[in-house]
Design a protein around this nucleic acid. Structure first.
Length: 369
DNA sequence: AATGCGTGGTC
DNA sequence: TGACCAAGCAT
């Protein structure tokens, strides 16, 4: 591995022994990911596609690698270049994103693609500041894209890095207040030489070794300098503020089926919860089960038949929906009628797929007829 | 600064 | 099995 031995750290004040230990570990133990260029190929001059790095980073915001992989592949199949994404119908992008969650990301993804195509000639800005000004790109993503795609010396801090740093330096102060202090530690560790590999090394370490529960400290390349390990309890860090209790909200959802085998759908407004996504008609979602969750409150009169309930847990509340179904002639103007066989191609969030499955058990069967 | 914003995997 | 939590952003 000559690319390791020919590198000259002596002139790099940022390349502490901790940094070098992490990079050496990354060279051996890095994860293979669809959007990633291996450190060996990177050392030979191969650069990752900024479009791929950006797309993967947005998908990975608060989302696991496992969940992202198939979506990343699907998006590249549908829209191989950022210009393709910029000119794609927004509904198509929302439909492709359905199931991944945090749907503002999909709306901003589309806006960002349009901005890059319109104002940057189809090329991403190659600095942290330039990237930071784009929709859906914040502190983390701007630093990650700058470092990984453009080899800029940007200090990347995500949940993984917070965990690694808080343990390495035994930082007892709770998040998010301790974030600026931790960020400064990352700045000091980030090398001029391989900032992108260093960021990915920190995140891989956090994902595979320095895990939230039962960290594999025996395998850690920097266990000899970890202050939390020296104190014999790395798992207690980082300290986070206590979470608030999740309230319960109640509502009713109405699955209307036409004689032609279509379901009545409508589009949610662009802002707020599930913004811009597709749904079946529902009542409002209220804190109390107060009689407003019955068929009397359906958007129109029909022979509504109860088909049980669906519970879905969102980030900040738990939703319990009573589900109703009725055979209805196509006379409603509250939305559009979609063939059951085409529901899989709609921008239906998971909670709505649950509702429709409750009312029509085989709705999402492969090759439904 | 605190809150709103999804989902599925893990133990 | 329910609580935790995963490569955060916008406001």
């Amino acid at each position: 591995m000559p690319y390791l031995t020919t590198r000259d750290f002596s002139s790099d004040v940022s390349a502490t022994s901790t940094t070098q230990a992490l990079l050496a570990w990354y060279d051996k133990h890095h994860r293979e990911l669809p959007w990633r260029v291996s450190p060996k190929a990177a050392a030979q001059g191969k650069r990752p596609e900024p479009y791929h790095i950006w797309l993967s980073e947005v998908m990975l915001q608060q989302t696991t690698v496992t969940a992202v992989k198939s979506y990343f592949t699907k998006f590249l199949d549908l829209w191989p270049r950022i210009e393709d994404l910029a000119t794609a119908p927004t509904e198509d992008v929302m439909a492709a994103w359905a199931g991944l969650g945090y749907y503002a990301r999909a709306r901003n993804l589309k806006k960002c693609a349009e901005a890059v195509a319109a104002h940057h000639g189809g090329s991403f800005p190659d600095t942290e500041e330039g990237l930071r000004s784009l929709p859906g790109i914040g502190d983390y993503t701007s630093a990650a894209v700058a470092a990984i795609a453009f080899n800029r010396q940007a200090a990347v801090m995500d949940g993984n890095v917070e965990r690694v740093i808080s343990r390495l330096f035994a930082i007892d102060a709770p998040l998010p207040g301790s974030k600026p202090f931790m960020k400064q530690r990352v700045v000091e560790l980030t090398p001029v030489d391989r900032p992108g590999d260093f960021a990915q090394a920190m995140m891989d370490l956090g994902a595979t070794i320095c895990t939230p529960k039962r960290p594999a400290c025996a395998l850690c390349p920097i266990n000899d300098r970890c202050l939390a390990l020296a104190e014999h309890d790395p798992e207690r860090l980082p300290v986070k503020a206590a979470k608030k209790e999740k309230p319960v909200r109640f509502g009713a959802a109405f699955v209307a089926v036409s004689p032609e085998g279509e379901v009545l759908l409508r589009r949610r407004i662009d802002s707020g919860l599930l913004g811009g996504m597709t749904e079946v008609p529902t009542t409002g979602w209220t804190a109390r089960q107060d009689g407003g969750q019955t068929a009397e409150h359906a958007p129109f009169t029909a022979e509504w038949e109860s088909c049980g309930a669906v519970t879905h847990v969102f980030t900040h509340f738990e939703l319990r929906l009573s589900v109703f179904r009725a055979a209805v002639t196509r006379d409603s103007d509250t939305g559009w009628w979609e063939p059951v066989t085409n529901l899989h191609a709609q921008a239906l969030p998971t909670v709505m797929k649950k509702v429709i499955t409750q009312a029509i058990p085989l709705a999402f069967r492969k090759h439904a007829s």
